[in-house]
């Protein structure tokens, strides 16, 4: 009988999906720093028979710029292996013929170059950081409240993240503010949305039970992957907090010290 628990499930895996910030590297001044052992862990996975994809809720830069940063840190990664919310949002907007009003960080704007933004009939918010001024949030609110059927897309729903100078409010806070103001429920694009994980699986041509997600965010990485039928393992790096291991609703299939350790465990199980 197939072993479905961690780490036995590694024997039957066909693909691995990695979160990026907090798993591969810690953000901070300049490019940030690679987490020890992570560069080599990615190399080992690439040399194995497992498929590998990267899945991030990063919405402050285009995928090209973001991947270039990781390459500078020493990671062997290409743009086509990385899934981020902005391109996923662009796909949804085009499919539904929607014209967005954007409340996002300037660095990610080029991702939306090909989208018609005249006479908006929905709002897309991302982690806009300093762009979250009262005036900008109010402008998004006015677009929504002026629509017959207000439609809000949120690129992720994080509460906060850590930077070298302290904790910063994330997009989820402003998503909740606009939800409350307009009495609506936003559609989340990115982790933990099942649709987002499913698009990664589709790209690999795998069923959910054949893939494992490794991340530092218990709810968005591990919980999101599990809800979609994948396995989810949490690393004790990045935004990990010890209280995560007794979370009321999400229990990781496994918890490991870092990416290097989890990759060694997986490859060991597979007899490498």
């Amino acid at each position: 009988m197939a072993d479905t628990g961690w780490p036995g499930c590694a024997k039957s895996l066909k693909g691995v999906v990695l979160d990026m910030c907090g798993v591969l590297y810690d953000s901070g001044e300049g490019d940030g720093v690679a987490i020890p052992g992570s560069i080599e862990a990615v190399e080992k996975l690439k040399a194995s028979d497992l498929q590998l994809r990267f899945c991030t809720n990063e919405t402050q830069a285009t995928r090209e710029k973001f991947v270039a940063k990781l390459q500078r840190l020493g990671f062997d990664i290409s743009v086509s292996e990385v899934f981020s919310p902005a391109p996923a949002a662009v796909a949804v907007l085009k499919e539904k013929g929607l014209r967005p009003h954007l409340l996002v960080y300037d660095g990610v704007l080029p991702e939306f170059d090909s989208v018609d933004k005249t006479d908006p009939n929905c709002v897309v918010i991302g982690d806009a950081a300093e762009n979250f001024s009262y005036q900008n949030v109010n402008e998004a609110f006015r677009v929504l409240i002026g629509l017959e059927k207000p439609l809000l897309f949120s690129l992720g729903q994080g509460r906060y993240y850590k930077e070298t100078d302290g904790l910063k409010l994330d997009v989820g806070v402003y998503m909740k503010a606009l939800e409350y103001a307009c009495d609506l429920e936003a559609e989340v694009i990115g982790k933990p949305s099942s649709m987002f994980f499913q698009s990664v699986l589709n790209d690999m041509g795998l069923h959910p039970h054949e893939a494992l997600m490794i991340g530092d965010d218990l709810v968005n990485d591990v919980g999101g992957a599990q809800r979609c039928g994948m396995k989810g393992v949490q690393v004790r790096t990045g935004k990990y907090r010890p209280t995560d291991e007794r979370h009321p609703t999400v229990t990781a299939d496994g918890t490991v010290d870092n990416l290097a350790q989890s990759v060694d465990v997986i490859l060991n199980q597979r007899g490498h």
Binding site: Y134, V137, N138, F141, R142, I145, R159, Y160, L169, D170, G172, V173, Y174, K176, A177, L178, E179, Y180, A181, C182, D183
Partner: peptide, 26 residues
Amino acid sequence: ARYYKRKDGLALGPGPFVTGLEYATD
């Protein structure tokens, strides 16, 4: 309050920002 009326149109009240802070800090 969710919003209020200003001469130039509707504007966000304190409620949305309070709700956002509640979400961020649980």
